[in-house]
Computed example of a mutant assay.
Amino acid sequence: TTSERILAEIERVVVGKRDALELILLAILADGHVLIEDFPGLAKTLIARSFAQVLELEFKRIQFTPDLMPSDVTGSSIFNQQAGEFEFRPGPIFANLLLADEINRAPAKTQAALLEAMQERQVTADGRRHQLDPPFLVLATQNPLEYEGTYPLPEAQLDRFLIRLGVGYPDRDQEWRLVEDRLQRRTDEIQLQPVAARSRLLEMQRALEQVHVSASVGYYLVDLVTATRRSGRVQVGASPRGTLALMKLARGRAALQGRDFVIPEDVKAVAVPALSHRLSLRPELWVQKVRAEDVVRDCLDSVPAPAAEDSTAARR
Rank of each mutant, 00 (worst) to 15 (best):
Q257T: 06
F161H: 01
E209L: 07
E209H: 10
S199V: 02
R241H: 04
Q157W: 09
D266E: 11
R251I: 03
A156W: 13
V213M: 13
R259H: 12
G168F: 10
Y219C: 11
A207I: 04
R198K: 15
R182E: 14
Q205M: 00
V267Y: 03
P170M: 06
A238I: 01
Q257N: 12
G232C: 06
F161I: 03
P154Y: 13
L208D: 02
K248I: 02
L244Q: 11
E265V: 06
R182F: 08
L183A: 14
G232D: 14
R172N: 03
V217W: 01
K268N: 11
G218C: 10
V222Q: 14
V211I: 12
Q184G: 14
M204E: 09
E203K: 12
F261D: 03
E180L: 04
L201I: 07
R160T: 09
S216W: 08
D171T: 09
K248F: 06
G168M: 11
D266A: 01
V211Q: 10
P273F: 00
R186H: 08
M247C: 12
A274H: 01
M204D: 04
R198E: 08
S239E: 08
A238H: 07
P194S: 06
L249S: 00
T187W: 00
D171N: 15
P264V: 03
P170V: 03
S276C: 07
R164Y: 03
Y169F: 12
L162E: 00
V222H: 09
